[in-house]
Write a protein that binds this DNA or RNA. Structure first.
Length: 942
RNA sequence: AGGCCCGUAGCUCAGUUGGUUAGAGCGCCUCCCUGACACGGAGGAGGUCGAUGGUUCGAGUCCAUUCGGGCCUACCA
């Protein structure tokens, strides 16, 4: 239900019926109902859906991909920060006239989703193997249908202006087809290979995981030294290990060839304790003389370095564990034991048999599964790998050459460092949920067939029904393709032509390598011959810099956002229990206030310590806006019912033809300045600057000064001029409307609500989101007005200041005497006599020919002296104290100025405006010092 | 082991290429329920910018060292 809260009556009923104001607004802003209403409206009206632009389109394009949240996910503060920033940038571009596409979707999240469903199954006492692969996958799809949309629904509450018609899921048929295509092409190009290598294995998830999915944790462990008897000699060789149970799989001892301590043992063998196996001593660089004893055990099946050494020396690989990290039949007497149990027994037995030499405290970086925390076990297994170097080279180049810019810039270096030290990527996972690898094994001859569709028979031996490999692909393999697959690849679609490369990517640094790096690798590889529509590329410009740029990159700009922490700067985590639920915050303060908080705190590169008190403050800001609107409506309804804004392009319309009051000139000047700053801030992702600038303008300038100045003009009934009131109203309405547009990207809901009301629910666009964004109009910047206003403000504040100090009753009006040496100041004060009286609570202003600065109570500025006529016992001591303090400050500054101005080096080297400014200030200071001195004398201060 | 970031008012944070008097929100103190708003208005207190040294006419800002806090990358047994 949209519509005014007052309901019922005709909005244009005449001004005489005082019972019914057309714009009746509640006294305070309640965001809840208003926000959900507009959130629904935006989705239902499909306001942000983008049709494929036809040939010949000449508008600039802005494309942004939503980093797909896991289907299993629930919205957290990180999402909200990310999405708020994206929405701000997206709304801003849309309002600036870009064809703006923001693509939403979710990620199938292999391990996470499988775990969720396995947990459900466990409640029924079942395991996934009880169901079998097909049934299990059906079950996952059911789960996805039921819960998978939750996070996207939550997004709607944030107001995210995405194109819901283009929502994707990484397991959609078209995206899956693209994944198969990519796999096959990479395989055909020789970039994907299969082989038996050591991978990171999670015994709980029962799958291989990539290097990135291993989190290292520094723990206090032990280093055990074990001695192996050298055969045929009365000697032992001692090695050190942190994982003694792996010694069961040792197939050699390595020593460094240059290590003279062991030269005499070259070519000898040792007897492996517990297993009673004879293994050689080999010279290999694996052993570093400086470390430990200089000799190292070699276990090719359980350690990546040992694996490599084993290859060099043709050593057997003895795998002593199974996929659950239990010891297997190769572990002899220890078969069947869990790895840690086996460790205990092995150590005990070694001890007993006299082979354990020492047990030392040792700090080691233990690798744990990112997903479940289980200690990762290096495991020898058959996996699929992506040869990364060729892809990384291009991906590196794209960033080095500036075809992709990264903000904040330090992440550029992080990215390049990583690319420079990259290893092949293990892309196969032993899971059921995910994109199954498009490869088949022939049961007959063992041939591996990689194909887009299931082959009917073996391509080599011709026997029937090859079986598809059971592994699926790493989830990031498919999400790395999204920038082009969501636009229709491998088809050469018009969408690709228009929207690729994406303009921007906003994401967190935590998936810099997982996702961002992979998108760049895949994009540069698969889109290498791509060219964006020339007209659109030109329209987009980037000041012309884009035109020479390569169009294979997945996006032209990257903005990396910070981490949201709790108010005590602690990282939020479920285990710590300090997670702030954004929806709960929204419930309490409103989405707008929450968004504003995140924007205002989002200085690039700095983590955000989310504090509710800030949000509370911004809720007050929303309320302030609401009440300023009430004030405006109240006056419009009284002065000129039915008055609407004169929406004209990107500027604010100032009616300069008739009334040109100082406050109008001033606020319009300021507005334009702010518009300029905000546009610049947003262009540089300086969200906090944009937010603060608008906040200060709206509250500190518009509400605190402009509206106060306007009041008498609007009040024509009390003898005012009705025409003047009309002009004031029109200007106020236009200014307000433009301010709403300026604020809209950050606070979309309240701005939408008020904006519609300004047009009596019949606005020129379906949404303020489709109205143009304000830009600076140079001609409306009015420096004189700004200077004049500053003098008036200074005067008013001075008088308020005196009143507060003398504790003059709030209601009492006092006369003041004013002096200035400048005729211009005189006329300024005369023209604004009424405003000064009202805002400073002054009864009368008497112009005096002689300064009364020395008579208490008085204040001075460089431009005027004001003396208040008020009979009250003066606290001479306190006043002296105040002046003294002020003088100290001025003296210090003056001394500093003189020192600099007396310095020839400074005069010679400092830029002219700085010297100029200092000189001007010095003159002011001389005046101020003189005034203060006189006053002190007058008062008889010591 | 290598790299990165942070340390500014009681709290949370701004302070773009070094340039005149270091800012904001919240909190605190005083006064005011004035017809947009007490989620408000007016005024005020509060900082030797972690420490030391250097570059410079000039440093919160640049450099070095150091202390404290955080993060990322790394196959050293």
């Amino acid at each position: 239900m949209r519509g005014r809260t007052a309901g019922g009556g005709c909005p244009h009923t005449s001004f005489h019926s005082h019972t019914q104001m057309p714009h009746e607004l509640p006294k305070s802003y309640e965001p809840g109902a208003i926000e959900t209403r507009w959130a629904d409206y935006w989705v239902q009206e499909k306001l942000f859906s983008v049709a494929t632009p036809p040939e010949g389109e000449t508008r600039p394009v802005f494309t942004l991909l939503l980093p797909p949240p896991n289907v299993t996910g629930r919205l957290h503060m990180g999402h909200m920060l990310n999405q708020t920033q994206m929405d701000i940038v997206v709304r801003w571009h849309r309002m600036r006239g870009f064809i703006t596409l923001w693509l939403p979707g979710t990620d199938h999240a292999g391990i996470a989703t499988q775990m969720m469903v396995e947990r459900d199954l466990a409640k029924e006492g079942k395991k996934r193997r009880d169901l079998g692969r097909e049934k299990f996958i059906e079950r996952v799809w059911e789960w996805k249908k039921l819960y998978g949309g939750a996070i996207l629904d939550q997004m709607k509450r944030l107001g995210a202006s995405v194109d819901w018609d283009r929502e994707y899921f990484t397991m959609d048929e078209n995206l899956s087809r693209a994944v198969r295509e990519v796999f096959v092409r990479l395989y055909e190009e020789g970039l994907i290979y299969r082989g038996k290598y050591i991978v990171n294995w999670c015994p709980r998830c029962e799958t291989a995981i990539s290097d990135l999915e291993v989190k290292h944790e520094e723990v206090a462990g032990k280093l055990w030294e074990i001695r192996y008897p050298v055969i045929g000699m009365d000697e032992f060789i001692t090695v050190a290990t942190t994982r003694p149970e792996t010694m069961l799989g040792d197939t050699a001892i390595a020593v460094n060839a240059k290590d003279e301590r062991y030269t005499h043992l070259h070519g000898k063998t040792v007897r492996l304790p517990l297993m009673n196996r004879e293994i050689p001593i080999i010279p290999d660089e694996l052993a570093q003389p400086e470390f430990g004893t200089g000799a190292v055990k070699v276990t090719p099946a359980h350690d990546p370095n040992d694996f490599a050494a084993g290859k060099r020396h043709n050593l057997p690989q003895i795998d002593v564990m199974d996929e659950h990290a239990h010891m297997n039949e190769n572990a002899g007497a220890y078969a069947g034991l869990d790895r840690y149990e086996a460790r205990k027994r092995v150590l005990a037995d070694l001890q007993e048999q006299g082979f354990l030499v020492a047990e030392k405290d040792y700090s080691l970086a233990l690798g744990k599964c990112d997903r479940c925390g289980t200690v990762v076990e290096p495991r020898l297994s058959e996996q699929w790998f992506l040869k990364i170097q060729p892809l990384a080279d291009r991906a590196k180049e794209a960033v080095e050459r500036g075809e992709i810019t990264i903000v904040p810039e330090n992440f550029r270096q992080v990215y390049l460092n990583w690319m420079n030290n990259i290893y092949d990527w293990c892309i196969s996972r032993q899971l059921w949920w995910g994109h199954r690898i498009p490869a088949w094994t022939c049961g007959q001859c063992g041939e591996i067939i990689v194909a887009r569709e299931a082959p009917a028979k073996c391509t080599k031996c011709g026997s029937g029904k090859p079986e598809q490999v059971s592994d699926v692909l790493d989830t990031w393999f498919s999400s790395g393709l999204l920038p082009f697959t969501t636009l229709g690849w491998p088809e050469k679609t018009r969408d690709l032509e228009v929207f690729y490369p994406n303009t921007l990517l906003i994401t967190g640094f935590d998936i810099l390598f997982f996702w961002l790096a992979r998108m760049i690798m895949f994009g540069c590889h698969f889109m290498r011959d791509h060219e964006q529509d020339a007209a659109i590329k030109k329209a987009n410009g980037d000041e012309g810099k884009n035109e020479s740029k390569n169009d294979s990159v997945p996006f032209r700009h990257v903005y990396i956002h910070a981490l949201v922490r709790d108010a005590d700067r602690q990282k939020m985590s479920k285990t710590k229990g300090n997670v702030i639920d954004p929806l709960e915050i929204i419930e309490r303060f409103g989405t707008d206030a929450t968004r504003f908080t995140l924007a205002a705190m989002a200085a690039p590169g700095t983590d955000i310590a989310f504090s509710e008190s800030r949000t509370d403050g911004y809720r007050a800001f929303a309320n302030k806006i609401w009440n300023a609107a009430r004030f405006m409506f109240m006056n419009v309804d009284r002065v000129e019912p039915g008055l609407r804004p004169t929406l004209s392009g990107t500027s604010v319309v100032l009616d300069r033809s008739r009334s040109q009051t100082l406050e109008d000139r001033w606020i319009f000047s300021l507005f334009n300045r702010v518009a300029k700053d905000v546009n610049e801030a947003l262009a540089a992702y300086r969200f906090h600057e944009a937010a603060n600038r608008i906040y200060d303008f709206f509250w500190g300038a518009l509400c605190d000064w402009y509206l106060e100045f306007c009041k008498p003009r609007l009040n024509f009934e009390e003898g005012g001029d009705r025409e003047n009131a009309r002009i004031a109203c029109a200007n106020l309405v236009n200014l307000f409307e433009a301010s709403l547009r300026l604020l809209h990207p950050i606070m979309p809901f309240i701005t939408e609500e008020i904006w519609h009301k300004m047009y009596d629910e019949d606005p020129p666009n379906k949404s303020i989101a489709l109205a143009p964004y304000p830009e600076m109009t140079e001609s409306q910047v009015d420096l004189d007005a700004e200077v004049e206003m500053a003098i008036l403000q200074d005067l008013i504040v001075s008088v308020r200041n005196l009143r507060a100090e003398l504790k003059v009753e709030q209601k009492a009006k006092v006369p003041i005497e004013l002096f200035s040496q400048e005729p211009a100041v005189w006329s300024l004060i005369r023209q604004n006599d009424d405003a000064i009286k009202r805002l400073a609570n002054v009864e009368s202003i008497v112009e005096v020919a002689q300064s009364k600065a020395t008579q208490y109570p008085a204040r001075s500025s460089a431009r005027f002296d004001v003396h208040m006529i008020y009979e009250k016992k003066i606290d001479v001591a306190a006043e002296c104290e105040r002046i003294k303090k002020e003088r100290e400050r001025i003296d210090k500054e003056f001394a500093n100025n003189q020192r600099q101005l007396g310095n020839e080096q400074f005069l010679a080297k400092a830029p002219a405006p700085v010297v100029e400014g200092l000189r001007r200030r010095s003159q002011e200071l001389v005046v101020l010092i003189e005034k203060a001195k006189n006053k002190m004398e007058e008062l008889g201060c010591s």
